[in-house]
Nucleic acid binder design. Structure first.
Lengths: 326, 326
DNA sequence: CCTATTTTGTCAATGTTTCGTCTAGATATT
DNA sequence: AATATCTAGACGAAACATTGACAAAATAGG
C-alpha cells in the first residue's frame, strides 16, 4: 500500500481539517485518535490518511458526536458514519486507488483540464476562447467541451479532482456557454428543448452541454439547472410545450429510484414530448425504459442527429438504432 | 445486526427524539424505560436501539398514551403500536397560511415577477433587457434584480411559487448576468472575490447577485455555484488568493451547523481574507460571528460600500455602520 | 360539580465531567 | 534571528448528574 509517501506538518493538517493545532495535539494525547510519525527533531508528521481520518472526526464532532465516543472507531466505520450522516453533498475522503489518468487526445482538452486542475480559470477561458475560434461552435462542443466534461468526471471519480474543481469548471463553462444559449432570440416557432438533471443528480455539466448543442442547432432551449424533482421537470416541460426533455444522468449510477422517476415524468408529459437521456450513468438505467419512449443517447453526434430528426415534426418512430418494441 | 456500537450522549438523544433531557432522565428514574450504560465519569451513554425505543415512546405519548402505561412494554410491541397509529393520522397537513403578497414597488420588478409566475422566460429576458437600458448595470442590479430575488424567495416560502419557478428564474438570471461576470477581462491585479453558498444552502440567486455587483465594480469574481462544502470554499479562496469570500445564506434559517461552518471557513483562510455574508437567513446566523471578522451585509448598497473600502487595501477595520461590540 | 390525589413535565441548585483553549519554556526548522 | 513545533500543565465554558421541589393536567372520590 503506497500511501503517496507525502508527509505533512501539523499546520498543514490544521488548515486542511479546520481543527486548531491545539485540538489535534490534545486529541492525540487524550484519545490516541491518531499516531502521527515523528521526524528528526520529534515533530509530528502526518500522512494523507491521517488527515482524512481527522476530517471525518471533525465532521462528526461538528454534528454533535462527542469526541470521546468516536475517537476510537476505525477508519471504515468513520467513513460510513460520515457518509450516512450527511444526506447533503459530502466531500468524501478519496481512498487511494489505481490512478489511470485518461489521456485526452485533443490538445485543447489537455490544456483545459490542466487549467481546471490548477484552478486557473483565466487559462481555462483563454483556452475555450481559442478553441472556439479554431473549431467553431459545434466543433468546440464536440471536440473540446464534451471530452473535457468526460475527463473531469473521470478525474473526480478517481479522487484526483475535488468538488471545488468540478464546481468551478461547471460555473465557468456555464458562463461561457451562456452566450450560445439565448432561448428567445431564435424564431418563436422553433421547437423547444428543456435540459436538466433529475433530483439527486448533481453534475450539471452534461445538461449544459446538451443545452448548448441544441441551442446551436436552432432549438429554443431552457436550461433548468440541476437536481430538479420530476414533478417540476414535468411542470416546466408542459408549460413550455417542450418537444424534448433532455436529462443528464451522471453521478449516482445505482439510484434505484431513478427508473421509476423517469417513468413518472414520462407519464406526466404530453405524449408527444420526447425524453432523451444521456451521460455516463444513463446506460445503467437504460434497460426497460426504451419501450416507454425514453431514448438513450451516447454521444453528442447521436444527440445531433436525434434532434435533427425530431426538429421538423415529432414522428412516432425515430432514428433510434434500437427498434422500439411494442 | 451491526448496530455499529456507537454510543450517544444524552444531548444527541434529546435532539433525535425531541424529548427534553429532563424527560429522558425522569422517565428512566420513574419507569425504568431504558437503562443506558454509564461511561467513565458516570455520564449516560445510549445505544442506537435505546434511541429507537425512546422515539417510539415519544410518538405514542404524543398521540395521547400515558407514559406510565407504555413505558414497560417491550420493543416489539411498541413498534407495532407506532406503525398501527400512523395509519390513522395520515392526512393532517394544514395548508392554511395567510397570504400577504408583497407589493414590489418597481414596475420592472412587477413585470419580471409576473413573467416568472407564468414561466414566460422570453418576457423575463425582455423585461431585464429593457431594465438594463433604463437603469444601467448597477441600477438594474439594485433596483430590479435584488427586489426580484427577494420577491421570488418570499413567494416561494409562501408556497405560491414552486421549485421549478425558482430554478428557471435562477437559470435565466444566471445566464443574463453571466455577461457581466467576466472574471479575467479585468486587470489581473484587481482584487478577487469568490461568491458561493455553503453546503446545504440551495438558493444561489443571492450569490449570483453579489457576483454581478462585484464584477460591475471592477473586481475579479469567481462564482463557484451553490452548496459547496466549506473545505472546498476555502480551497478555492486560497488557491485564488481571494480578498473576499461572499456567502449567500437564504433558505434553511435554522441550520445549527452553519455558524460552526462559517468559523471553520474563516480559520482555513488566509487571515487577510474577509468573509461577508448576506441574504435573508444571514442575520439569523449573525450574532457571535462579528468578532470572528465575518461581516453581515444587508443591502446591495452596503455591499458596494464595503467592497469599495476593501478594494484598495484590506484595512483591519472597515466601514461597517454597526460598531463592533466588545 | 367540587375537591383530593396521582401523573407528568419542568425547573433550580450544586457538584462533576468533558473538551477546547491558553501559557510558558524548550527545541526545531528555515 | 525569526518562525514553527514540542511538552506539560492549567483554566474555563459548556454539558451532565443528582436531588428536590413545583405546577398543570388527568383521574378519582364525594
Amino acid at each position: 500500500m503506497l500511501t503517496s509517501g507525502i508527509q505533512h506538518t501539523i499546520s498543514t493538517v490544521s488548515q486542511r481539517t479546520g481543527l486548531s493545532q491545539h485540538v489535534i495535539r490534545v486529541w492525540e494525547k487524550r484519545y490516541g485518535t491518531i499516531r502521527p510519525g515523528r521526524s528528526g527533531g520529534n515533530q509530528r508528521v502526518y500522512s494523507e490518511s491521517d488527515i482524512a481520518r481527522l476530517q471525518c472526526l471533525q465532521k462528526l464532532t461538528a454534528q454533535g458526536f462527542s469526541i470521546s465516543k468516536v475517537a476510537h472507531l476505525d477508519d471504515a466505520t468513520l467513513g460510513q458514519m460520515v457518509t450516512a450522516e450527511i444526506d447533503k453533498t459530502s466531500t468524501n475522503i478519496s481512498p487511494s486507488q489505481e490512478v489511470r489518468p485518461v489521456a485526452p487526445t485533443n490538445d485543447s482538452v489537455v490544456q483545459a483540464l490542466d487549467a481546471v486542475r490548477h484552478m486557473n480559470l483565466g487559462a481555462l477561458e483563454d483556452c475555450l476562447e481559442r478553441a472556439l475560434l479554431k473549431y467553431g461552435q459545434i466543433g468546440l462542443l464536440e471536440r473540446v467541451i464534451a471530452p473535457l466534461a468526460e475527463a473531469i468526471g473521470e478525474e473526480w471519480r478517481g479522487g484526483r479532482l475535488q468538488v471545488a474543481h468540478e464546481h468551478l469548471a461547471t460555473s465557468t463553462l456555464r458562463t461561457f456557454l451562456g452566450r450560445f444559449v439565448r432561448p428567445f432570440t431564435v424564431h418563436p416557432s422553433a421547437p423547444m428543448l428543456v435540459a436538466t438533471t433529475p433530483a439527486g443528480q448533481l453534475h450539471e455539466l452534461g445538461a449544459i452541454l446538451v443545452a448548448a448543442t441544441a441551442s446551436g442547432m436552432g432549438w429554443r432551449v431552457i436550461y433548468a439547472g440541476a437536481s430538479l424533482p420530476c414533478e417540476e421537470i414535468a411542470r416546466i416541460a408542459r408549460s413550455q410545450s417542450a418537444r424534448v426533455v433532455a436529462l443528464s444522468l451522471i453521478h449516482p449510477e445505482d439510484d434505484p429510484l431513478i427508473p421509476q422517476e423517469l417513468k413518472r415524468i414520462k407519464r406526466m408529459l404530453e405524449p408527444s414530448t420526447r425524453i432523451i437521456m444521456g451521460g455516463r450513468a444513463a446506460s445503467a438505467y437504460a434497460n426497460g425504459l426504451s419501450e416507454d419512449g425514453i431514448v438513450l443517447i451516447r454521444t453528442l453526434d447521436e444527440l445531433r442527429s436525434m434532434l435533427d430528426s425530431l426538429r421538423t415534426k415529432h414522428d412516432p418512430d425515430l432514428g433510434n438504432p434500437v427498434p422500439a418494441l411494442t
